[in-house]
Design a protein around this nucleic acid. Sequence first.
DNA 1: ACCGATATGTTATAATGTAACAGGCGCTGG
DNA 2: CCAGCGCCTGTTACATTATAACATATCGGT
Lengths: 160, 160
Amino acid sequence: MSFPVPQHDHGACIRGAMDAAESACRMQGARLTPIRRRVLELVWENHQPVGAYALLETLAKEGWSAAPPTVYRALDFLLRHGLVHRIALQNAFVGCSHPGEPHAGAFLLCSHCGAAAELADLSVDRAIAEAAARNGFSVTRQTIEVEGLCPACRAGGAGR
Amino acid sequence: MSFPVPQHDHGACIRGAMDAAESACRMQGARLTPIRRRVLELVWENHQPVGAYALLETLAKEGWSAAPPTVYRALDFLLRHGLVHRIALQNAFVGCSHPGEPHAGAFLLCSHCGAAAELADLSVDRAIAEAAARNGFSVTRQTIEVEGLCPACRAGGAGR
DNA sequence: ACCGATATGTTATAATGTAACAGGCGCTGG
DNA sequence: CCAGCGCCTGTTACATTATAACATATCGGT
């Protein structure tokens, strides 16, 4: 999965993500409660990582009883079930493009428009696994976050 | 550079880092002031990333006038001049093993002993550059943080 | 209906990071 | 010399992100 074109049908992204989440939860016997479902939808509002407190604010406006733990617990659940990823560089969260398939998660982050794209590229994983092995290190989790310019922003001249 | 053995001569690590910092600053016309120098030494106290507030506490005990900006400014300086790296997963800072040579910085982080090792491996950089290029993405900076077990902790049975 | 496990509500606080402004120190040019 | 400028530091206040702890509620199985 790479960057979506600006005018893509984002409704389809959201519906797809929600459907995938539904079935992933059903399979794992996990409960996608209303608040968890709503948080996941909000995370998918666009392709940019969103902060916990931004989610909180939106939930509050929508009338949910909303304190920080509310959001963090929902996010923990979504993280545990592989439905969202955390972007460490931004203290923010983004919807997972491949729920179900276990994967490390590597991200391209556009410095100009803020979009995040999940990079499904085994060659990167392989290079890291090999480098780690050469150092006698056994990997349990990896975080890869690459900053730069996405295709649309490059075309738009954002880099000048 | 990989993980140092537990009983290595760490004094030599520190002296080496400080000497390298001195000469790097001299070359760049940057001022390694007493507080910056001391923060760098503290970052190098061991091979584990250290948090800004831990540094702050140590400085305070040593009698420095110490408020958060004091430490963050010193860290900013050290980051800008490539003398330390920030570990995003831990909101912490670690000494750079290769000051002078520009490099992205990739880290192996041991979940058991907390040690961090800087991975100088071009194959990883290359894999990322290629994957990014395939997605039409131009890279400006990359963050790679790999969690797992270092050789010493594996040998010690930390994984059981 | 009851029980245990899970989920949520609520309050308070911890941990990390910045803004903004004042003052000082050192260099450089007149 | 000293005036001016740039950089560095001191200080106060605050913003942002995250968690602890405990009470209450809800769900699902028996």
